[in-house]
Design a protein around this nucleic acid. Structure first.
Lengths: 111, 111
DNA sequence: TTTATTAATCGTAATATTGCGATTAATATT
DNA sequence: AATATTAATCGCAATATTACGATTAATAAA
């Protein structure tokens, strides 16, 4: 096994889980923060800044790209990575949906 | 390999990644939503509601407990699971920290 | 006491993730 | 043309995740 039974869940649950998965590694959070901090989007710097091997950083970038959180454009030999602001907006929206649905929590009544 | 190089990251990055990991499966999001929806916290119902095997649901509950998002109290034969409202507050705070740090994103300038 | 119910855990299988060295393809530079 | 730089990808190893049947321990009910 090891594969999610997708048909059991709503689109919102699946979408949010996918975003959460993208954020589920400190390196990927660090990459996002680094990307937003840099003046330019020259992103080979990420490798030195993060402290992981180039192949590993490249893999994390791929995950972030897959989730739609970042975009990459080729600039000669280099690749410029940037956060997709729209994706961030959608992510925030999905998170708000979750927190709204958890707001009616009556847990203090029993645990 | 297959283990995160924790020493490279800040506490915030590690903490948030751990929370995100807990949310990184639709079943666990479904469980949280179900827990907040039920009048009581009688949670054996989760197994029928979610549609996964008892052992699998139990494992997801364990993950949520590990992340601190839920608590479980024994009530006779049954176990009552509840969302920890404080953990939700912390999670929101960590997420706000992230979004604040990503706010200064200048990505539209280049990608 | 015997039987039923509940939920954790064990064991197993399939798959995914994390990490990196080595290689590769692409573009720059000399 | 030869060389350097950059970043994706391959291949591998270690570990983690997802899922479930079977078992177990605990409590409740008969």
């Amino acid at each position: 096994m090891g594969a999610t039974k997708e048909q059991l869940f709503t689109d919102h649950q699946t979408r949010l889980a996918a975003y959460a998965k993208a954020l589920a590694h400190p390196a990927r959070i660090a990459i996002l923060q680094q990307l937003s901090k840099l003046d330019s989007c020259v992103c080979g710097d990420l490798v030195t800044d993060i402290g992981l091997a180039q192949a590993t950083v490249s893999q994390h970038l791929k995950e972030l790209k897959k989730a739609g959180l970042i975009q990459g454009t080729i600039e000669g030999v280099r690749v410029c990575y940037c956060i997709d602001p729209e994706a961030l907006t959608i992510l925030k929206k999905e998170l708000n949906l979750l927190f709204d649905s958890l707001q009616s929590c009556k847990s203090t009544e029993c645990c």
